[in-house]
């Protein structure tokens, strides 16, 4: 069993009179990459800053590696942090930026040279040592920032939307690199993002936040397959969300007094039945709209009884045209019930 490394207990934070974080609790395990995911304004960056020691007033406890750190100043916590704007020091070369923390710790020049050289090699910037930040691309700047934080071997590395200022392609490249450094060097990382795909792609564990509260914590798969409430179902994927009555109209038995909602993930529709037809419900309707997503195709259809549904198929089968009457099937067991 892995051990609990960071624990946040009953964290509340007030910012200019508003309680932006309300009695928050969560735990993070060692050497994992955990993502804080949530819409903007949900409070995820605020929590990250509290862990780093950059918020002035918090209540609750923050335990890192078994020690309470909530009363320590930011410069006493041995935590690394990466900012969205990179926060490189424009007056220092790449080498000096990375060496900054080591110089604060008064390491010898030889040690600094060795450590900085090694970490710059890791992030593949060994030939940029003498460059200045203004001459680097966005992706390179962020790699310098990562190196600068990692060279100090912090207990935990906090990343605050580190990729959101970058182009789509670089983002994917860099997020894979971050995941690779994390696994190769065994760093505990806490990563803030508002991008579901990014969170899904790199995390061991995702903590979804909204409105200052944890909505759900779990592995990417768990969160995607079993959203706990309507917010989660809406936020996390492209799911079809149906009320009890709507589901009943598709021929599924739902108790009369059941007020729950149900989700049908669009990729679970099939064009034909495999196995026992009693296990399936049939949705017949007309294709209203087609979006080619590249590897997949999304169809929006209006069912014969007036429901709007989304279905996704791999982009390798027959394609339907707009207006065509179709029958899609979905396994009854794949319909997921969610609370509020």
């Amino acid at each position: 069993m892995s051990s609990i490394f960071l624990e946040v207990k009953d964290l509340s934070i007030n910012l200019s009179g508003n309680q932006v974080i309300k009695d928050m609790n969560f735990k993070i395990q060692k050497n994992t990459l955990t993502t804080f995911l949530g819409p903007s304004g949900s409070g995820k960056t605020t929590v990250l800053r509290a862990i780093a020691g950059l918020n002035q007033k918090i209540s609750g406890k923050i335990l890192l590696d078994g020690k309470e750190i909530q009363n320590l100043a930011a410069n006493q916590r041995n935590i690394g942090m990466i900012f969205q704007s990179y926060a490189l020091f424009p007056n220092l070369s790449v080498f000096e930026n990375v060496a900054y923390g080591l110089r604060v710790r008064k390491e010898s020049n030889a040690v600094i040279k060795e450590k900085v050289g090694a970490i710059l090699k890791t992030v593949n910037l060994q030939d940029k040592e003498q460059s200045y930040p203004e001459n680097l691309s966005g992706g390179q700047k962020q790699r310098v920032a990562i190196a600068r934080a990692m060279v100090l071997e912090p207990k935990i590395l906090l990343l605050d939307e580190p990729l959101s200022a970058l182009d789509a392609k670089i983002r994917i490249e860099l997020r894979n690199q971050i995941r690779e450094y994390q696994q190769r060097l065994g760093i505990t990382m806490l990563f803030v993002t508002h991008d579901q795909a990014e969170a899904m792609a790199i995390s061991d564990e995702i903590i979804v936040m909204d409105n200052g509260k944890v909505q759900q914590q779990g592995s990417p798969l768990e969160i995607y397959k079993h959203p706990q409430n309507i917010f989660m179902a809406k936020f996390i994927g492209n799911h079809n969300i149906l009320e009890a009555g709507q589901l009943r109209s598709l021929g599924v038995e739902v108790a009369e007094n059941d007020k729950s909602s149900f989700i049908i993930r669009p990729e679970l529709f099939q064009t034909n039945i495999t196995g026992d037809s009693d296990d399936y419900i049939v949705v017949s309707g007309n294709i209203k709209n087609i979006s080619i997503l590249g590897d997949r195709i999304e169809y929006r259809l209006t069912s014969d009884n007036g429901l709007e549904l989304k279905a996704e198929f791999l982009n390798q089968q027959q394609t339907f045209t707009v207006g065509k009457a179709v029958k899609f099937y979905v396994r009854k067991g794949d319909i997921e019930k969610v609370g509020f």
């Binding site: 780093a52 020691g53 950059l54 100043a73 930011a74 410069n75 916590r77 935590i79 690394g80 942090m81 900012f83 969205q84 704007s85 990179y86 926060a87 490189l88 020091f89 424009p90 007056n91 900054y100 923390g101 604060v104 710790r105 600068r148 100090l152």
Partner: peptide
């Protein structure tokens, strides 16, 4: 982004005054 730069210097271990002198003033 001086706020991030200043906070980064604190996280890297500097005191506020040193961070001001080393990171803010030169820039």
């Amino acid at each position: 982004d001086f706020r991030a730069m200043f906070e980064q210097a604190l996280i890297l271990g500097d005191s506020p005054l040193k961070a001001f002198v080393k990171v803010v003033i030169p820039n």
